[in-house]
Simulated assay, not measured.
Amino acid sequence: MLRWGLGALCASVACAGGALAQGVGDARAGRAVATSLCIQCHDIDGAARDPSRVPPGFGAVADMASQTALSLRVFLQTPHGAMPRYQLTPTETDDVIAYIQSLRAR
């Protein structure tokens, strides 16, 4: 009985973790944040997919194999280059991450 209980618990935690990883943020709200803050320098519509462009378009960022929700979160919260130091709320950060991930080429 205990053995079955632990297995069921592990399975439910694994499923919940996957759902949380995929369900974070609102891509539509993330596009609105990107339109207000990022569009001055970045191509945000996903059409620009050249990873060598500086700064890269969001489509190129989305296509990078190394881009996970965690790596995007760290990047957005870390000063880098000449990019303005925006102070996104946790919700805005989640939304921008969801938007960038929605641009990933399928």
Rank of each mutant, 00 (worst) to 15 (best):
A34G: 10
A34Q: 07
A34I: 06
A34C: 13
L37M: 11
L37R: 14
C38K: 04
C38T: 05
C38G: 11
I39K: 08
I39G: 08
C41L: 05
C41Q: 10
H42R: 06
H42D: 09
H42C: 09
D43Y: 08
I44E: 08
I44A: 04
I44S: 04
D45Y: 06
D45M: 01
A47G: 10
A47T: 14
A47R: 15
A47W: 05
A48H: 14
D50S: 03
D50G: 07
P51Y: 13
P51E: 06
S52Q: 13
S52V: 00
R53D: 13
V54H: 15
P55W: 02
P55F: 02
P55I: 00
P55L: 01
P56V: 00
P56Q: 10
G57R: 00
G57N: 06
F58S: 02
F58M: 03
G59V: 00
A60S: 12
A60Y: 05
V61L: 10
V61C: 01
V61A: 04
A62V: 02
A62W: 10
A62N: 08
D63E: 09
D63Q: 09
M64S: 15
M64H: 15
A65T: 14
A65E: 13
S66C: 03
S66V: 11
Q67L: 04
T68G: 09
A69C: 04
A69H: 14
L70W: 14
L70A: 15
S71H: 11
S71R: 13
L72A: 10
L72P: 14
L72G: 12
R73C: 02
R73D: 15
V74F: 15
V74A: 14
V74N: 12
V74C: 05
F75T: 12
F75H: 14
L76T: 10
Q77M: 09
P79W: 02
P79Y: 02
H80A: 13
H80Q: 12
G81V: 01
G81Q: 10
A82S: 14
M83D: 03
M83E: 02
P84G: 07
P84A: 08
R85W: 05
R85L: 09
Y86G: 02
Q87E: 08
Q87T: 11
Q87K: 12
L88W: 14
L88I: 06
T89K: 05
P90H: 06
P90V: 00
P90L: 01
T91H: 09
T91W: 01
T91N: 08
T91M: 03
E92K: 04
E92F: 07
E92N: 06
E92M: 06
E92H: 10
E92I: 03
T93P: 12
D94Q: 11
D94V: 01
D94R: 07
D95Q: 09
D95R: 07
D95P: 06
V96K: 03
V96E: 05
V96D: 09
V96S: 07
V96L: 13
I97F: 11
I97E: 05
I97W: 13
A98M: 03
A98D: 05
I100Y: 06
I100K: 01
I100C: 04
I100N: 04
Q101V: 01
Q101I: 04
Q101H: 11
S102T: 07
L103A: 07
L103H: 10
L103M: 05
L103Y: 12
R104A: 06
R104P: 09
R104T: 03
A105Y: 09
A105H: 15
R106W: 02
R106C: 00
